[in-house]
Structures are given as C-alpha cells and as structure tokens.
Amino acid sequence: MTSERPSLALLRSMSDEAVLRVLLDTPRLTRAQLAVATGLSKPTAAEAIRRLEAAGLVRDTGERTTGRGGVGSYYALADAAGVALAVAIAPDGVVVEVVDPAGTVTDRVREDVRQPATPASVTALLRKAARRALGARPAGSVRVAVVSAADPVDRVSGDLVQLPDAPFLLGAMSPRAVLRPLFDGPVLVDNDVNWAALAERDARLAQGQQLRDFVYLYLGEGIGLAVVADGAVRRGHRGIAGEVAHVTVTGPGGTVLPLTELFAQLGLRRPGSIAIDVDRLLAALHRPDDDRTAAALIRAVRDLVTAAIAFCDPECVVLGGPWGTDQAVLDSLRRDLDGHPRGVPVERAVSTGEPSLSGARTAALAALRTDIVARIPA
C-alpha cells in the first residue's frame, strides 16, 4: 500500500501562503526572519518570496539590515495587494473608510445627511464620499467593499428594502449599484444592527468571553434586533429578520398597538418624522415627576425582550444604542424581567462608539485578506 505524497505544486502553494500570512500580520521582514516565522528553510522561504514578488503580492521595500553579518533585504506586502472599503450609511451621515491589509484605516471621509433623507440624496452622498476616499487610487486597488446600512437589506440583491414607517430612507436604494462603477470587487451589504451584533461578539471575545448565542436589541432613532446563534447572524429568508418596529406591544392603559405607534402616542417622534426623538425620550426617562412615559417605554421593551427570549433561547440579551445603554433603561428592564420563568441576563453592549462600522470594517478586512491569499499562483 502506497501513500500519496503532496505534489510539488501543492507544497509550493503552502509555502507561499505561509509567507504571505506572516506578512499580513507584520509590516516588514527579511527572508531570514520569514524563514523563522514560518518554519520554512531559508531556501524555501526565498523561493516563496520570489514567486510572490512575481505575482505582485510582495515587494522589496528597499530597506536593508544593518550591523554585523550579511546584509538582508526587508520584504512587505505590495501595494497591488489592494485595500478594502468599509461603509456606513446612517441617518446622520455616510462614512467611507479605506482599510489596508494590516487593518489600518488609511483614509476616512464623512458626508452629513440632511433630513428628510431620500434614496437619491443618500445615493449622491455615498458616491461622493467613496470617490473622495479613493482619491487617485486605481480602480483595481479596491478588492472588496462591506456596507452597513440603517435600513432593511435584501440578502440576495443587497438593496435597501422599503418597509412601512421606516425611520431613515423613504424608499429603496442600491449601494452595490453606486459602488460597482468605482471598482470591480464584490460589495457585501447588511443591516447596521447585524454588523453591530457581530462587533459585540468580537469585542467580548477579545475580553475572553465567548458569547455565541444572544439577542442584540438596538434602541436609538430606530429600533432593530439581531439574532446571533452559534456565532453567526441569522438573517431570515429575505434578510430582514429582526425588523421588530411593527411588533405589537402593550401601550398606555393596557392597549395593544404596534411599537412604532407607541412613540407617536407618547409624543416621542421627531417633528415631521417617524424617527424617535432620543433626546426627548431620555429626558422623559429621567423625569422624576412623571414616570408614566418611562413605564410605558420599559413595558414595550420588555414585551420585545420576552418575545425574543421565547423564540431564540439566547444566553443573554444585549442592549445597544443611545437609549438602550442608558442605565435607567437597564435597571428598569431588569426589574421588570425579575422572576420571568425564562430569566435571561440583560446586559449593556460593550462595543460602543461606532459598532456597526466596526463590524463592517472587521468583515472588510477578513474579506480582503481572503482575496489576497486566493491570488497566490497555482
């Protein structure tokens, strides 16, 4: 019985990948250092570098070692390895970042959104921000784009979906159609709450906590929910799972009404808009002389959370967003859920700042690195 030995082509490919992956994590290394880091012999590492140089993935930096011993050349990823775009489309603005293979944001452009936002106005802002961020870069340098959008996203087309009472755009738009003329790579689009949930997963992992089954509830100008099961976001058949704004909740006086209507009844919408007035809502939550509004809000959030617990069986419920992370909301919700037959911890999000963009940026970097490795010569 004879065992099959790996082919020479496979061995070369494995050596090339080992060298390339080390250079993805280290700015520059000599051939000797690459041999040590990969465990390859010096001649094998040198051959891998030569092949990667010929493929345009690695370059000689022109820098040389100093000191005793022979002079060594430093190698790094070539500029042709490419960059990724991380994009956030939100009610307050459109942000486009250029991310290099090391994960560094080399350029960032923001364009403010004027309300009321329309698909045409946001499309124009996205195109303008992307062009400004790319500058004089050749189209081929951008390998992938990842977009976070504050609207429902069709999982097949990547288009933003128009739903009744959407708090942001008043119609559908296509980020892919906007970005594709600027470069040839793939464009991945998903809802901002989904990206925020993945950023939360990664932030907790960095803290040594493996949170793989949880519900992420975003409470801000709009309301959204993401379900993470086995470490992955569950998007549903069309990709719009978690659009909970129309879930019926208990309103004032025990009435049952859609969640979106509750904010109208409580006078917590922005003038001429269906977006939640977060400043007014937070003021109501902390007003000591009238707790009726606060009680109605907490009761509605409790209805959402208990429904999510019943259907998703999460390890915990994470609250994010400008009023989801408010201590009064957390404390009140925990008291309301105390004694619930399926008690699940309710926790404040640890990924703050720009969690949706952070999640998109992480995905863009991972996709860029996968693309670079895939271009190793066969």
Rank of each mutant, 00 (worst) to 15 (best):
L211Q: 06
A48L: 07
W323R: 04
G231N: 03
P288K: 00
E17M: 08
L160V: 12
M1T: 14
L368V: 08
A35K: 02
A149L: 13
H340I: 01
A307P: 00
L357R: 03
Y218W: 13
T306A: 13
A133Q: 05
R50M: 10
R375L: 12
T38S: 04
D165T: 11
G69Y: 04
F311W: 11
V96T: 06
G39L: 06
T118F: 06
D326E: 06
G236I: 00
L169Q: 11
D331Y: 03
G222E: 03
S121G: 11
S15V: 04
A45Q: 04
L24V: 01
S148A: 09
F311E: 13
A378E: 10
E63A: 08
T362R: 11
L57H: 07
E347C: 09
R176Y: 02
V19G: 14
D313A: 12
G359I: 00
G353D: 03
V247D: 12
P164G: 04
R155Y: 08
W323F: 08
A145W: 06
R28L: 13
I298S: 07
F263N: 02
S121V: 09
R369T: 00
A145K: 01
V36R: 09
L297T: 04
Q207H: 15
V187N: 05
A130K: 00
T306S: 08
A46W: 10
E315V: 01
L266M: 02
D313W: 00
R342F: 14
P175I: 03
S3M: 13
F311K: 01
V99H: 00
R204H: 10
E221W: 06
A102V: 09
L10Q: 15
L134S: 05
A275H: 00
I276L: 00
T248A: 15
E97L: 14
R238M: 05
A133M: 07
R68V: 15
R127N: 13
P91D: 05
H340P: 11
R132A: 13
G67A: 03
R335K: 08
A226F: 02
V22P: 05
G339P: 03
G324V: 09
A203R: 15
V249T: 08
Q210F: 15
V228A: 07
A328L: 05
T370R: 14
Q115N: 07
D331R: 03
P314L: 02
A81T: 14
G56N: 10
W195P: 06
A150P: 15
A54C: 12
A120N: 05
T2G: 15
A294M: 10
V58I: 13
P6Y: 04
A360T: 01
E354I: 15
V58P: 10
H340Y: 02
A46I: 02
G353A: 05
G185P: 08
A80M: 14
G135L: 09
A294D: 08
V144E: 09
T306Y: 07
V105I: 15
